[in-house]
């Protein structure tokens, strides 16, 4: 069994290296974006083999899914080819790269062996999480309990980073809402795609909700669910039209909802302060600590999902509304 894992590891890592080399050598931005999607998918596979399903899920949804779509929307604005530059000497970058690489390799010499149980990372806080999470938090998926409860501050920081990215994009680009109605023709311009999208979107949204609320029990959570939900709307935008999608989910409402998600997260912390606990201490939210933890994790995961979904949709709208033609 471990032999076949080793074989799969070797194949995946080799493919990863070849993908990287192709990305570096290619000049077509479109190809580079697609290849980086493949890169993320390969790393997601490696994470699955390492038994890190939550990370793999996030990598597949965020890295291979939404960031590829956002990058494609970006090169829709910028153009598909890398600009030709003056050929500069390749010696000095080469020296820098070799020195940095040598330093990095030297750094790995001090690292403990892979899967060494006495490594510092397995001795610090991990044993406490693993021993106490089932009784303190009481949800089956330990990753969610670490992410949402023990490391609630860090996750709040991540949500705020996502929100800050939205503020950056909106203040730099903004969303141009087209006032004109979309042109409906008979037959529709993309009949097969539209029928298929109509069929798939409800299932995608259902799956997003499942991932959102099942995050306590299996791999999943707010980040992945938010991304999957926004993908449903992006699919609708691509197969129908931008105006239709903006009528369905108006950007003005999305902006408020994105802020509301962060507010829900922070508000949970404030409520726990008022109830006599520490900031983001869910123990005081209900009559007994374990129930409080359950409520707290559900509420903040909902906040995370809301923010991530709205931010992704808004960034996508901001990008495609800059493009000349209707996608």
């Amino acid at each position: 069994m471990s032999n076949i894992n080793l074989l799969i590891d070797i194949v995946l890592l080799t493919m990863l290296v070849f993908t990287t080399i192709t990305i570096v050598r290619s000049r077509s931005l479109f190809a580079i974006v697609m290849l980086s999607g493949i890169y993320s998918l390969l790393s997601a596979n490696i994470f699955v083999i390492l038994d890190a399903v939550d990370v793999a899920f996030t990598e597949a949804a965020v890295g291979a899914g939404i960031s590829t779509v956002l990058m494609l929307a970006t090169i829709g604005i910028t153009g598909y080819e890398q600009k030709k530059r003056k050929t500069i000497s390749s010696i000095s970058p080469m020296i820098v790269v070799i020195i940095t690489g040598a330093v990095l390799v030297y750094g790995t010499l001090d690292m403990p062996a892979f899967t060494d149980p006495s490594a510092p990372i397995h001795q610090h806080v991990a044993p406490r999480y693993i021993n106490d999470s089932p009784t303190e938090v009481g949800i089956p998926n330990m990753v969610t309990s670490v992410l949402a409860s023990y490391r609630g501050y860090d996750t709040m920081g991540e949500v705020i980073v996502v929100f800050a990215a939205l503020i950056g994009v909106l203040s730099l680009l903004g969303i141009r809402e087209k006032k004109s109605d979309p042109i409906y023709t008979e037959p529709p311009p993309r009949p097969i795609l539209q029928v298929m999208a109509k069929f798939m979107i409800p299932f995608i949204i259902l799956f997003a909700l499942y991932v959102q609320f099942h995050g306590d029990f299996g791999p999943g959570g707010g980040f992945q669910a938010g991304v999957i939900f926004s993908v449903a709307i992006i699919l609708y935008t691509l197969t129908f039209s931008q105006q239709d999608a903006m009528k369905l989910v108006p950007p003005s409402i999305l902006k408020r909802l994105a802020a509301l998600g962060v507010l829900i997260y922070g508000g949970t912390g404030i409520v726990s302060l008022f109830k006599g606990g520490n900031f983001l201490d869910y123990n005081v939210l209900a009559h007994d600590p374990v129930h409080g933890q359950h409520y707290g994790i559900l509420i903040i995961e909902f906040g995370v999902g809301l923010t991530v979904a709205c931010v992704m949709m808004l960034i996508f709208f901001a990008f495609i509304s800059r493009g000349d033609k209707n996608p």
Binding site: R190, I192, L193, M196, F199, M200
Partner: peptide
């Protein structure tokens, strides 16, 4: 079976 043929169709189209 539902999505791959449609994806191929979109690509070729």
């Amino acid at each position: 079976w539902l999505t791959s043929p449609v994806a191929s169709h979109a690509l070729i189209r």
